[in-house]
Design a binder for these strands. Structure first.
Lengths: 143, 143
DNA sequence: AATAAAATATGATAAAAATCATATTTAGGA
DNA sequence: TCCTAAATATGATTTTTATCATATTTTATT
């Protein structure tokens, strides 16, 4: 459903939500450990996310990554879209091009509702909300 | 969520449910076209399924693949388990080992219910039922 | 201005998944 | 009993995904 890269990216953004601010930027080398993703790998992903304004960054001395208010209000799905693109997550369970609501494949009806729920949640849940859940003890790390 | 191989395998088994019987075996070369999967590839998958008794086969002259009553009562999940194993489909959305009901990761709660529904359906739906849906015009091919 | 420390851009390598190829075994029919 | 047609077993190749490496650009500090 999600690529490894997307999962890593979500973890990284969540880490930034919990541990960074404009005044307190975080460097790749301090992200990779806590989220358990190789440094060079997460660096590349963070760069893609920054280019698409999902996260913020400044380079050079005292630089690093952080989330601004805009970034905090992004949805989980926006991360997935940048890293995996649309295709992967939107395809039918059997990857059938001809499958659609009016002429559904054999698995469509039995899975559609729940699948749609998942997508709906990913599209509505913001990074800020996820971070709040952690801060209020409703969900847990480590990532 | 599902590997390409699992999707192919489900399509092949469904095709057999609709087009084969003990009296009317089907050869790989007559399966690959209709389900749109390369012949050598689907052959390998069918062999794995046969070895695990998800489908039936006889070799030699007049041989081929088919489904017996037992096979027809298998669930979709049983196919997935043979092809993908348990790990892939049962892992948490972020692939976090430490994520579980009592100490859920940030995505766990928002996705768990719908994800569980999907698994529940895959575990309960039989091949026969899927085939019946097609035959009664509730769902559609081509695969 | 020079230096150092950071992200960025680019591409190389490794591992896994998907795909293809072929020799072997088995069963039926002549 | 031989021949042919089928699955089976095995492994090679290709493609995709994941991972690693490094030269370049930018920014703050001295």
């Amino acid at each position: 459903m999600l690529s490894n890269s997307s999962k890593y990216a979500i973890k990284a953004v969540l880490f930034l939500a919990l541990n960074s601010s404009k005044k307190n930027k975080v460097m790749v080398k301090d992200i990779s450990g806590p989220i358990n993703v190789p440094q060079a790998y997460i660096a590349k992903l963070l760069q893609e996310l920054a280019k698409e304004n999902i996260i913020s960054s400044t380079r050079g001395h005292k630089g690093g990554f952080y989330l601004n208010t805009d970034n905090l209000n992004r949805t989980v799905m926006s991360i997935i879209q940048v890293i995996d693109g649309d295709k992967r997550i939107n395809t039918c369970m059997l990857s059938l091009d001809a499958c659609h609501e009016e002429r559904p494949c054999p698995l469509h009806r039995i899975l559609y509702a729940s699948r749609n729920d998942i997508l709906k949640h990913l599209k509505s849940k913001t990074i800020k909300e996820l971070a709040l859940d952690v801060e209020s003890g409703n969900s847990f790390l480590p990532l």
